[in-house]
Structure formats: structure tokens, C-alpha cells
Write a protein that binds this DNA or RNA. Structure first.
Length: 392
RNA sequence: GCCAGGAUGGCGGAGCGGUCAAACGCACCAGACUGUAAAUCUGGCGGGGUAACCCUACACUGGUUCGAGUCCAGUUCCUGGCACCA
């Protein structure tokens, strides 16, 4: 039986199994619980739905009776992942790293059965490596091998800095596989180099090399870059339902299929059907399915209705935050106060015709408003405030 | 240690000693267009002021100048290369 059948629908979230499909099948055939490793970088606190992909695969292994070994990279996070090194990396304190780890676990407990999982922190063993062990590890690689790696090659050619510890990063990650005795390692396709390092090190240590299972990366809602919290194009597990739906509808059409495949639990046939139909409908169904996965079908359906009401029918949202202001305020003051922006921003919006009060477009910032309770102040498409008369 | 280059907005990156709140690009915001979008077009994008206008910015400290991101000196940090490698 092939692993594809074992994974069923989830197989569509797997990019590559290497060295080869049959290696994973062979592991399954052994009939013993496998140790399946997933290492996570806890630089940021939010878990994106992209991060969720390997977590779901891990959860599936768990369901199949295998051991989910979740490694919080507390040590490696302090070292810093080479990718994106040119950005000024906020230096995290050990306390922050601990805190981030907790936040992570809190957010993913809906995806993974943490009670049955083996949660480890790689500082547990990495912090204890002594110099001679480090030497042994690092002597297993050549500089040429490292420079083959695309991100290093590019930077080297460009004369950009490459720090020595960046070479060590993947060694550490590889060593994790030895430390937890991994049979399988999961990770995004961007981790191919790193997870393969685990194989090399394990082999040299006389262990059977792990099988690596990579998943496709999910582009962010901007449609270009990899989904990431720092880029600001992400949908996170803790994104409120309303925003989750809204953000999902903002992806470019080209990505609908990919999102359906990677971010929803819809059946393959349903996805195929949606692909043949109206793209706008497919996108909304995707957004609804995604929201449903995290907040339940009922909430998702409600958000869809609400969305259609606000954007398609141009009606007001159901819940509008209130803003209390005394009468006789200028438009500028209202916009500033209600949406807490600088006057510059507020003036700009007004000048550009983005602001309405009770449906009337206000283009003069100095207009004095005598509002009554329930008048809606609007700035742009998605900023609303319900005005109320009262002391400021 | 030596040589060289660099430090400007959220980012990248311009900027003959004066008119720089800072070209251009990206990101972002708004408007138009649409099916929310994306693409495209238009406008905006340090802070305050209705406005005229004012204030704060070009690593830091001094200096030269009527006037300095722009010149000089020192300091800090970054990068590349070279040397050293007992």
C-alpha cells in the first residue's frame, strides 16, 4: 500500500518524499510506531496557516499511531535561520524564546494532540554540545557543499556577508534528527537542504537516515511572497474568523486552487468542481472552507453572508464599533478619533473622498458635524464607526 | 593590523555646499475599474496646522562655511579584500 493511500486527501499537501516514495512505504511496512520529527522556528509568535500544513501531516502520522516529535527550536532560534539573514533580525532574549514557544503550543493544540506528542526543545541537547562534538559534526561537510545551497551561493556571488554560524544552523537542525532518533522529518520545500542534512548526519552516525517529507509553501495573500508574519501577508491560526474570510478572498485568482488544496479540507472532487466553475464563487467557497476548518461551519457561513452583504451589496456590516463624540466636531476630528490615525492620514483620506458620514461624502476636513446616534462614519472600504453623541 | 567601501524614510536606493521632507522602485493607504481581489490607471504616503506656515529627520561628536547628508577631523558600527596565524 502506498503512502498516498495512507494519507488519503492529505497527500495533496505533500510535495516530495525523498529519497523516494518507496522508502516511506517501507517504513510503514515495518508496522512499528515511527518517530516523526517536525522542527519549528519560534522567531515569531503567530502560526500561519502555511505553518499549519506540516502540522496537519504530523497530526495524521499521529492518528496512524506514530509518534509526533515536535521540536521547538529554542536554541536554533537564538542562532537565527540563514534565510532572510540580510534583514535586521530582532535579537530575541531567551525569555522571549520561551514565551514564543508557549504561544506556539497554545495555538497549535487544536491541530495536534499535544498530550500524545513528544514536545522537545532542542536546547536540551544543542546547548550541551561541546567543542569536540561540534568539530565532529562540522567536519562532515565541505565548504563547497554549503556553497551549493542556493541562498548561500547567491549571497556569496553578490559579496554579501555570510556568517559562519549560518553554516552551523543546518548542522544543528540535522543533529536534532540524531538526538530524537527520527525516522521521518517533515518540513516545507524551503527546508529541503536542512532536512537532507539530517539524513547525512544520521548516516555518518551509523543510524538509518530519516525519510524526508516536504510540503509546498503557501504564498501569502499578496500572491507573491511566501506567507510570513513578518511580511504581513499571512493568515494565522489565531486570525479572527472575520479577517480570515476577508483575507482569503483577497488572494489573486491564480492561487485559488492552491489554497483549496493546501488550506481547506474540501474533498478533491469538490475542488475539481469548483475549479471548473466561477472563480469568484470558488474563492468564496475556499474562504468559507478555510474559516470553517478553524471556526466551524456555522461561523464560516455567517462570515460569508456578512462579507457578501458588506462588499457585494455595499451594505453596512452588522457589528460596527461605536465611537462616542460630543456634537459639533469636525470631520477631521471624528476620523482621527474613531480610527486613531494621525491628522495627516485622516486629512488624506478626506481629501481623497474616502470618508462619508451617514452616507454623505465629506471632502472638507473642517466641516462641522452635528451627528445623531447611529450615524455611520466610514473611511475607505473597511473602516466603520457608529457615532454616538456623548462626552468625549 | 592594513587597504577599500559604507551608515539617508517601513525596506531598497538617489542626492554638483544652498530651492531636500528627500528622486526612483517596493511595501502601504485611498479613488476609478471589477466579482472582494489581482492586473491597470489616478492620487497620496515624517509630525502638527483649515491654511499661509511651523517643527523633527540624513549613525555619533566636534569643526570649516553666510549656509553641510553633501567638505574636514575624531568616534561607533557594518561590509569586502589583504596580511598575521606564535
Amino acid at each position: 500500500m502506498s503512502w498516498r493511500e495512507t494519507f488519503g486527501q492529505l497527500a495533496r499537501t505533500i510535495d516530495t518524499v525523498f529519497p523516494g516514495d518507496r522508502d516511506l512505504d517501507a517504513l510503514f511496512a515495518k508496522g512499528r510506531p515511527l518517530r516523526v520529527k517536525l522542527g519549528i522556528d519560534i522567531t515569531s509568535t503567530s502560526v500561519t496557516i502555511g505553518n499549519g500544513i506540516p502540522l496537519r501531516i504530523l497530526a495524521r502520522f499521529q492518528e496512524l499511531g506514530h509518534v509526533a516529535v515536535l521540536i521547538l527550536g529554542d536554541f536554533t532560534t537564538l542562532v537565527g535561520d540563514p534565510s532572510g539573514r540580510d534583514k535586521t533580525r530582532p535579537v530575541l532574549t531567551p525569555e522571549e524564546v520561551v514565551q514564543n514557544g508557549e504561544t506556539w503550543l497554545e495555538q497549535i493544540k487544536g491541530l495536534l494532540d499535544l498530550d500524545r506528542a513528544e514536545v522537545r526543545r532542542n536546547g536540551e541537547w544543542l546547548a550541551k554540545l561541546d567543542s569536540s562534538q561540534l568539530l565532529t559534526l562540522s567536519s562532515q561537510l565541505t565548504v563547497a557543499q554549503m556553497l551549493e545551497r542556493d541562498s548561500f551561493a547567491t549571497r556569496y556571488r553578490a559579496g554579501s556577508p555570510i556568517h559562519l554560524h549560518e553554516f552551523l544552523y543546518c548542522l544543528f537542525q540535522g543533529y536534532d534528527s540524531i538526538a530524537v532518533n527520527a525516522d521521518v522529518e517533515l518540513g516545507g520545500t524551503d527546508q529541503t537542504f536542512n532536512v537532507n542534512m539530517g539524513r547525512v548526519l544520521q548516516k555518518n552516525a551509523g543510524m538509518r537516515p530519516q525519510v524526508c517529507v516536504t510540503n509546498p509553501l503557501l504564498e501569502g495573500v499578496d500572491g507573491h511572497k511566501k506567507m510570513s508574519k513578518s511580511v504581513g501577508n499571512s493568515i494565522c491560526l489565531d486570525t479572527p474568523a472575520k479577517d480570515m474570510f476577508g483575507l482569503a478572498t483577497r488572494i489573486p485568482d491564480e492561487l485559488i486552487e492552491k489554497y483549496l488544496r493546501l488550506a481547506t479540507d474540501l474533498a478533491d472532487e469538490t475542488i475539481a468542481d469548483l475549479g471548473r466553475g466561477d472563480p469568484w464563487n470558488a474563492k468564496k467557497s475556499m474562504a468559507e472552507a478555510l474559516t470553517a476548518r478553524h471556526y466551524g461551519a456555522e461561523t464560516a457561513a455567517r462570515e460569508r453572508t456578512e462579507f457578501e452583504r458588506v462588499f457585494a451589496e455595499k451594505k453596512l456590516p452588522e457589528d460596527i464599533p461605536e465611537y462616542v463624540a460630543p456634537p459639533g466636531r469636525t470631520v477631521l476630528e471624528l476620523v482621527r478619533g474613531a480610527f486613531s490615525m494621525t491628522s495627516g492620514e485622516a486629512k488624506r483620506l478626506i481629501k481623497q473622498g474616502a470618508v462619508t458620514v451617514a452616507g454623505n461624502k465629506m471632502t472638507d476636513a473642517s466641516t462641522v458635524i452635528e451627528h445623531t446616534d447611529g450615524d455611520v462614519l466610514r473611511a475607505g472600504k473597511r473602516r466603520f464607526a457608529s457615532l454616538r453623541v456623548g462626552p468625549s
